[in-house]
């Protein structure tokens, strides 16, 4: 997004899709989070330390996801402009909530995105570790196979 040339065919399309997908994912994630709160969760596997670490990691990922969605939204809406989601519906702006909003939210969005990508990498490695080393059902359960 930050390396697009002004004359690129994607200069307008890519940010439009980026914002549209982001806001839709925000809705989906919120739905998922509520679902998690109200439905019974599968029994956690592993030792005490692993279970606590997993809980912290999962909550951190949710926190990072929501912070990512919110910071992204705050960049584009800092000047009262609304965001068009695939020309399907429009999410209105809440206005400028604090000074230098687009810059501060922009930095948060940037670093959080990288942090999240790294965290997800760790998450994937942890699931593979459960599958191949601990030989438990974690990965199968994540994939809905069990």
């Amino acid at each position: 997004m930050v390396d697009l040339n002004y004359y690129s065919d994607w200069y307008k399309t890519a940010p439009h899709w980026h914002k549209s997908v982001g806001l839709l994912l925000a809705g989906l994630t919120l739905f998922r989070f509520v679902w998690r709160m109200v439905s019974p969760r599968p029994k956690r596997l592993g030792g005490d330390l692993e279970r606590v670490a997993a809980s912290i990691a999962h909550l951190s990922i949710y926190l990072m996801l929501f912070s990512l969605f919110i910071s992204g939204y705050l960049i584009s809406t800092a000047d009262n402009r609304a965001i068009d989601v695939f020309n399907w519906f429009t999410v209105p702006s809440l206005g400028e909530l604090f000074d230098d909003q687009e810059d501060i939210a922009g930095s948060i969005h940037f670093y959080l995105a990288w942090a999240l990508i790294i965290f997800i990498g760790v998450h994937v490695l942890a699931a593979l570790k459960h599958h191949f080393f601990d030989k438990d059902a974690t990965l199968k359960r994540m994939l809905g196979l069990q």
Binding site: I75, S76, D79, E96
Partner: peptide, 8 residues
């Protein structure tokens, strides 16, 4: 320039 994304 009256556009937050552009100003950024």
């Amino acid at each position: 320039s009256n556009h937050a994304e552009r100003d950024k």
